[in-house]
């Protein structure tokens, strides 16, 4: 009897040692990446996008990737002269995908934050974003004070909304999901009183789903969205920055907006959302434009 216990305990210790060894090894190779030349030579670039975040990155009924991010990704492939291999990511695994070299670029609506900038390198921004909260129209949440003690707010694991609420509103109970599709279904089913996420995303949800309204259109600081590469991958980062600057001259992201976002948001939000040439304009034309680019927190 004792022997069995000892044998199992020994096995446990071995497993633990192995895990540690593996994680140390993973640490040593942290920041595995392919340089610009290696990507060009291989003829394929791996780009991490969302597959369930319409209209930014999603898979259409024909199984093709579509959306604002994807439109940009395709252009990157075109200008590099390589094929684009889309890799579907979840919000919480975007950093890992870069650090382990599974993708060369993350173009999954990745909000620039200080914490993330310690782990990955962000290129110039291509979109503005802030947080927003959507709720059913018969019980609209217009301020976070409307959230009752026992109410749960839906968030997606690994998003800026989660970090913001965890930090600034520790009393609000969060109901966390892995994927956009699940969070949306949960909101439709009434499992939570509201859903907090990027305001672009909650606006799109309210437009597509009658019965829901965005009670809080902006929350926290105004942020930007940018492509990210593995930390230290300077050749790719420099190329991306040049690319974004030169695309600004032809107003590429306006064209991107008109091709992918116009149907959802209409023309009113174009100047609010689009960042051209990596230059955050400071002020958009719409009233609720996220004006000041304050600290990158949220």
């Amino acid at each position: 009897m004792k022997k069995a216990v000892i044998r199992r305990a020994a096995a446990a210790v071995m497993i633990l040692a192995l895990t540690l060894a593996l994680s140390v090894a993973a640490y040593a190779s942290d920041g595995e990446y392919r340089t610009l030349d290696e990507i060009k030579d291989s003829g394929v670039i791996n780009i991490g996008v969302f597959s369930d975040k319409s209209p930014f990155g999603y898979v259409d009924e024909n199984g093709d990737y579509q959306g604002y991010d994807v439109y940009f990704a395709n252009r990157i492939g075109e200008d590099l002269g390589v094929e684009v291999n889309f890799v579907s990511t979840e919000a919480a695994s975007r950093i890992e995908y870069l650090q382990t070299g599974k993708v060369d670029i993350i173009l999954a609506n990745f909000t620039v934050t200080e914490e993330r900038a310690e782990e990955v390198d962000f290129a110039l921004p291509y979109m503005n974003v802030s947080l927003g909260v959507v709720s059913p129209e018969d019980a609209v949440i217009e301020s976070l004070d409307d959230v009752g003690e026992d109410d749960q707010v839906i968030v997606i694991s690994g998003t800026t909304a989660e970090t913001y609420l965890t930090k600034n509103e520790p009393d609000i109970k969060l109901q966390k999901y892995d994927a956009y599709a699940e969070a949306k279904t949960a909101l439709e089913n009434g499992n939570g009183v509201a859903w907090a996420n990027d305001n672009t995303e909650v606006m799109a949800f309210a437009i597509e789903n009658p019965g829901f309204v965005v009670g809080i259109p902006t929350l926290g600081s105004a942020d930007t969205i940018a492509p990210a590469v593995t930390k230290g991958n300077d050749t790719l980062l420099d190329w991306l920055n040049e690319e974004i600057k030169s695309l600004g001259e032809e107003e590429f992201f306006h064209a991107d907006y008109e091709a992918t976002l116009l149907d959802t948001y209409g023309a009113d939000y174009e100047e609010t959302l689009v960042v051209e040439g990596g230059l955050v304009a400071g002020a958009g034309e719409t009233a609720d434009a996220p004006v000041e680019t304050a600290k990158a927190g949220g």
């Binding site: 994680s23 919480a92 914490e115 782990e119 694991s157």
Partner: peptide, 14 residues
Amino acid sequence: FTAKDLIGMYAKTM
């Protein structure tokens, strides 16, 4: 989920 969630927020994977 707790582990994944923490990784997503603070990126301390190991």
